[in-house]
């Protein structure tokens, strides 16, 4: 059974325990062992990278060094954490000067960054280590071909030379549940989350454009794999009635919620009621 160092970050446990619960259930059903990492907290987000590049390197270098101690890959369900860890790992592997500077700080705490493990996003690990075929074998309640639009999130996809993630991975994982993947024009566009602190109306307009694009392409549901993207597409959707006079009523599910339901896990166990736009109609699309 593959074992992973689970790095939750701060947003999933605080804002999306339904994401956390669903991924733990999925891991159990698929035979993946997630071990919560000790002594870690927040990755700092792109905001920390913006104001304090070196601090961001040390914070994330420390997390990576702690994970290296037991040799298991580090896994996170958050695109923000994934982007930070993956980018810092990439930078420290290629810049020996910064690596020496970071390790000088880490040695004060008996830690050293060596770059010996991989940084994994939850969905990449499910795709690579379990795979769509094995998932199909385990599914007991497949979806009935209902159309789902995927929002990948920028920091999962780009920069591609750093993230090493391919959109097809999540596409195949959604199809493995029996759902249809709905293509839509703005599939690559950002959800806007990063600029909420500096330009909230613009951030909301980006989320709205995205939701609209999904809906116009015929999506009945949307799926995300990041708490920040979830916030933008699900929670912010409720505010669009007031700001834009528009109601989209597009339920947004975290991918492990969809997978868990198809694996026969109950809706309460994956916190379906916590989704902001009511998502329980998806239960009517489960066969078997």
């Amino acid at each position: 059974m593959p074992v992973y160092n689970l790095y939750m970050g701060c947003s999933v446990p605080a804002n999306y325990p339904n994401y956390e619960a669903a991924m733990m259930k999925v891991a159990e059903a698929l035979g993946m062992e997630f071990e919560y990492m000790p002594d870690v907290a927040c990755c700092g987000s792109p905001n920390l990278r913006a104001i304090d590049y070196f601090g961001w390197l040390v914070v994330n270098g420390r997390t990576l060094a702690i994970a290296e101690k037991n040799g298991h890959d580090i896994l996170t369900p958050c695109n923000g954490c994934f982007g930070s860890l993956k980018d810092v790992q990439h930078h420290l592997k290629h810049d020996s000067e910064d690596r020496a500077r970071v390790n000088k700080e880490l040695r004060k705490h008996d830690l050293e960054f060596k770059g010996t493990i991989k940084v994994r996003h939850l969905v990449e690990a499910i795709y690579t280590d379990i795979g769509p075929d094995e998932i199909r074998r385990k599914i007991t309640k497949p979806l009935d071909g209902v159309g789902i639009a995927i929002h990948y999130g920028c920091h999962l996809l780009r920069p591609a030379d750093v993230t090493e993630f391919k959109p097809e991975m999540l596409e195949e994982l959604v199809r493995a549940t029996g759902a249809k993947v709905v293509e839509y024009p703005l599939w690559k566009q950002c959800c806007g989350a990063t600029i909420l602190p500096v330009n909230e109306p613009l951030a909301i307009r980006l989320a709205r454009d995205k939701i609209r694009s999904m809906k116009e392409a015929g999506a009945e549901y949307a799926t995300v794999v990041c708490p920040a993207c979830g916030n933008q597409l699900d929670l912010q959707q409720l505010g669009l009635k007031e700001s834009y006079g528009e109601v989209y009523d597009l339920p947004v599910l975290l991918y492990p919620q969809i997978l868990a339901l198809a694996l026969g896990i109950g809706e309460d166990a994956v916190g379906l009621r916590m989704n902001r736009v009511a998502a329980d109609s998806i239960l009517g699309h489960l066969k078997g």
Binding site: P38, D39, V40, A41, G44, L48, I51, G55, V59, E105
Partner: peptide, 17 residues
């Protein structure tokens, strides 16, 4: 489980943050 904010706070107090 495992959450501890001591590490990040100690680091960032000493850097530009």
């Amino acid at each position: 489980p495992g959450l501890s904010t001591d590490g990040i706070r100690a680091i960032l107090k000493e850097t530009r943050t």
